[in-house]
């Protein structure tokens, strides 16, 4: 396995609009990195350029210090798992997995040994002689994974590999992928649009938007300290409070309301808080509290979600409770200091 460096990568399909705008990042040896973004953000383009399936307009792809920008796909020694699995329909499971080893002209004995080993590791031992059309989606995905891993690739690329599976299987497969990644010490680039999935599986997450990197950090940091409004919005922050007037480094005034946060305001203009972190409290005179009126409520199963009208605009609140509060109720909200995050972009 290896370290991947992407340097000032740009891509334009028609010579005008840039799909990727000068992106750079480094993935460490043995690290599991997800690229997260909505469709059209450039995440798949990035992955395909790393794989060599697409040529970049400018920039470099570097593996262990070696620039491979000009190396053709079949000489890069990567493994890739596709959303559609892309198994060879005319070959059995065994032959599918053996394909890459045959291309490397290994001895038959060694091919047999390595294929068997990886089939057992992925729980496919029994299915070796089946054809892809005779397998379930989950089984096909395993074959696809086995085929990508058997050549001991320097880098494992995965393009939305779990999107075609049902919810339960998806969770099971992602645990399995993570287990294999740790066991084999793989460097993985995993593309997905599913926030939960990539937070669960990754060492670090790279969030992309409109061809640029929004934030590249650990899931915990992204979750608790989103850097931009886009990231906050993408991962479920729904309340955005404008910083009207700065009182000191960590206090600001908006619509006559004084709010405090633990983070430095610097040049930022917006703060944010997750609906489940907003508290409904009794005493109105504590720090960071404000009055509001419930406009609407929604049942979420574990909790109730309310839309509350306040002097600083509507605020979403989530509260775990057995019975809902009724509309038009006057309540007091607390925006806890530690949960009010400053967005620098």
């Amino acid at each position: 396995m290896a370290e991947l460096e992407v340097k000032q990568l740009s891509k334009s399909f028609d010579g005008k609009a840039k799909v990727l705008k000068d992106i750079s990042f480094t993935i460490k040896d043995g690290e599991f990195v997800s690229i997260l973004g909505s469709s059209g953000c450039g995440k798949t383009t990035t992955l395909r350029i790393i794989a060599g399936l697409l040529d970049q307009t400018s920039g470099q792809v570097i593996i262990d210090g070696q620039d491979i920008s000009k190396v053709p796909v079949h000489k890069r020694n990567f493994g890739m798992v596709f959303q559609s699995y892309a198994l060879f329909p005319h070959l059995t499971v065994f032959q599918n997995v053996a394909f890459g080893l045959k291309m490397r002209k290994l001895a038959t004995n060694e091919i047999n040994e390595r294929v068997k080993e990886i089939l057992n590791l992925t729980g496919l031992g029994e299915l070796a002689q089946r054809y892809p059309a005779e397998l379930s989606g989950g089984q096909q995905q395993r074959v696809s994974l086995a085929r990508a891993l058997v050549t001991k690739p320097r880098l494992l690329l995965m393009d939305e590999p779990l999107s075609n599976l049902d919810a339960k299987l998806r969770v099971k497969m992602r645990e399995e992928i993570r287990r294999l990644q740790k066991q084999l010490k793989l460097t993985v680039v995993f593309v997905t649009h599913d926030q939960q999935e990539c937070f669960a599986i990754s060492d670090r997450v790279l969030i992309m938007n409109a061809g640029k990197i929004e934030q590249f950090d650990t899931p915990e940091n992204i979750f608790h300290h989103p850097k931009s409004k886009f990231v906050a919005n993408f991962i479920g922050y729904e309340n955005f409070i404008n910083i009207g007037e700065k009182v000191d480094e960590r206090t600001f005034k908006t619509n006559d309301l004084i709010l405090k946060t633990n983070e430095e305001l610097r040049q930022a203009e917006v703060t944010t808080i997750r609906p489940e972190n907003v508290q409904i409290v009794d005493e109105p005179d504590r720090e960071n509290t404000l009055r509001g009126e419930i406009i609407s409520s929604e049942y979420l199963g574990q909790s109730f979600s309310y839309l509350v009208r306040t002097v600083i605009g509507n605020i979403y609140v989530e509260e775990a409770r057995h019975a809902p509060r009724s509309e038009n109720d006057q309540i007091v909200l607390e925006l806890p200091v530690k949960h009010l995050h400053v967005l620098y972009r």
Binding site: A86, F88, H90, F99, M103, R104, T151
Partner: peptide, 24 residues
């Protein structure tokens, strides 16, 4: 993507045509 999978597995484009495309 089946052809792309073959390329990534180390098969050149020309070989992929004969080994993967034609049989299918």
């Amino acid at each position: 993507h089946i052809e792309e999978a073959a390329w990534i597995s180390g098969c050149s484009a020309k070989k992929t045509f004969f080994l993967v495309v034609l049989p299918n």
